[in-house]
Design a protein around this nucleic acid. Structure first.
Lengths: 344, 344
DNA sequence: GCGCAGGTTGCAAGCGCTTGCATAGAATGC
DNA sequence: GCATTCTATGCAAGCGCTTGCAACCTGCGC
């Protein structure tokens, strides 16, 4: 009832060679004479042999595994990030291992420990707000890593592949101000403890200043990212009697929820209220109306991060700090505010 | 420049005990005398020691890893499935390892091999359309597994935790027929090679039969799951001049795309066309109008599958076949067709 | 015909940990 | 007070592979 899986040794016996040769047939086939190689591979096939990863890892001191510490993002950002990393990693035979911090504010240390126990050869860290001990432990163990979605606090110290959230916020503000909006509202993730949310907010505020546009305190809501949260936030804004013609949502999920709530309250988008999101999620062209949003290079970041780590593992020691461009995608949810038609 | 990470031996030396004792301090602390235990743990902490997973796996013959073969689903189903599996697994110290078949029709064998190389203790298989060799290899290696999202073809042979897609299709049909709809259209994933899509379709057709409702061939479109695909499909239906008052979409992504396209074509939902999706995705309450859809127990399936495998690994040999209920969630995208107001 | 360079393959020493068994005290019972 | 039973720890044999090095061939040049 415990038919042990075939071992290297059994394959070797069947092929009439030593275990070393079988090992080489699988990892560096070009070293073997043609005849031997085919004979060995036939034996492998015949027995359904599968290499024992733990033993390989132990002997070779590499696991061919890359870890990623990724907080619970929205499903779409999460899936996109994972997919893009995987796509590149699998080409070189690496496997991706995921670990989430227990909750958004928790330390990344336990997640990192899980990954290190698993022997990851390198690590992807999302965001730059990690416990300093995290970087320290990576350095001590000499494990390459890269920060994604953000710039490193100290670019010389940490490699990073990200984009500029502040600039994203500014793009949104400039677009709306240019359309003529002066009364703003914003639904955001908590701006403390989340540098990405904070930067989007700061960028927006920055771009409002010169035109005299307003984003009063009672028109600001901080909540978690989510459809329901966006919807609830609009309910709150309206209950507060907040006065705005432009609603900036911290990401596209919030925006979708907001669109639904605005429709429910009979506010037309974009005639009565312009709505903007962030992320240019896959669904953004299919909201009603189609959502104006800022495109983040999430896919490119994942691919770039994966390639960078692979390079590092090949011996390249360079520390890279890449900032990929963000881009405003104007669709149908923003337009000029109607003259003198503010609520009331 | 290669400061080897601390080993068990170094910890043992620092704590003045043998390596065996350190090992036990970490895995079965209750076996040690209080004093020894704290001394050892202090040393562990001091050195920042992290166990070497590969060596553990090799010595203990268990990896504490569970693998999942999951085709590329939509982001939300994927994320939900992964999250629910992880939530349960991590409680018992298991890590989840993912592998995707290269493309939807590809064999799951390479994905399985990746997982087996990694030494997974058990495997989750999504769907039941796997190469027989897959089951065979799992059996030979004595690796527990469970099929999710579907019933096993042969329930006695394979454990499964799923739901009834046919019933889901029937629920939708019955709802629409009861509202008075007689002319249907459907946008589906390819029905061959995807039993889930096929069953939803068959269930729908079944429920139409008795009322004399029609789902003509030119009102059926098969495409991939996606927002854009849903939107394009509606364009096609309208270009074909298909005549329908009820549009059934194979999942909620298709439905969102369809809603957007219908709005673009000036067809009002639900007055002119009722629209239904499948999955009750998180965003379903926030589409415009809010989407009527069938709730799948995806979260529950993940949790259940994880618990089942953990039980198996504890020695319970039972083969479980669970079918969790599906449920129609009626929102605002369906209503009775207007009398005599068919197109034309 | 011999020496030597390449090209192949075998040998065997670990990789860092777990765990069954043995051992040594300590505690208990009579 | 001694035998007996526990409890806490040490010992050391692997777990299944990779890989540096050595050994062996083969063929070629001279």
């Amino acid at each position: 009832m415990t038919p042990r899986p075939p071992s290297l040794e059994e394959v070797a016996a069947l092929a009439g060679v030593s275990t070393g040769t079988v090992s080489r047939a699988l990892s560096r086939p070009e070293l073997l004479a043609e005849g031997t190689r085919t004979r060995v591979l036939a034996a492998v096939d015949r027995l359904g042999y599968v290499r024992h990863g733990a033993a390989r890892a132990l002997a070779s001191r590499r696991t061919q595994t890359i870890g990623a510490v990724i907080p619970r993002l929205g499903a779409s950002m999460f899936a996109t990030t994972v997919r893009s990393l995987q796509r590149v990693l699998e080409v070189d035979g690496y496997t991706l291992l995921l670990a989430h911090p227990a909750d958004p504010d928790a330390s990344s240390m336990p997640a990192l420990t899980t990954l290190l126990e698993r022997g990851v050869d390198a690590v992807v860290l999302l965001g730059n707000e990690h416990d300093p001990a995290v970087y320290e432990r990576l350095r001590v163990r000499n494990v390459p890593y890269v920060i994604i979605w953000a710039r490193a606090g100290d670019p010389a110290a940490h490699p990073s592949i990200g984009f500029d959230n502040r600039r994203a916020g500014r793009l949104v503000g400039e677009h709306l101000v240019a359309l003529g909006h002066r009364r703003f509202a914003m639904i955001s993730a908590p701006t403390q403890g989340n540098a990405r949310a904070r930067d989007r907010f700061l960028g927006l505020v920055e771009s409002l200043a010169s035109s005299g546009a307003q984003l009063p305190q009672n028109a600001r809501i901080e909540t978690q990212y989510g459809y329901r949260e966006g919807s609830d936030a609009v309910d709150t804004l309206i209950a507060r009697d907040a006065d705005f013609t432009a609603l900036v949502c911290g990401n596209d999920y919030l925006a979708v929820g907001a669109l639904a709530a605005l429709a429910r309250h009979g506010r037309r988008v974009p005639q009565d209220v312009s709505v903007v999101g962030f992320n240019d999620s896959e669904f953004a062209p299919y909201t009603i109306p189609a959502l104006t949003t800022v495109r983040f290079p999430i896919e490119a970041i994942g691919e770039r991060a994966a390639s960078y780590l692979i390079e590092r593992l090949r011996g390249d020691e360079r520390i890279e700090n890449v900032e990929l461009p963000v881009e405003l995608v104007v669709r149908d949810s923003t337009t000029a505010p109607r003259r003198g038609t503010a609520r009331r």
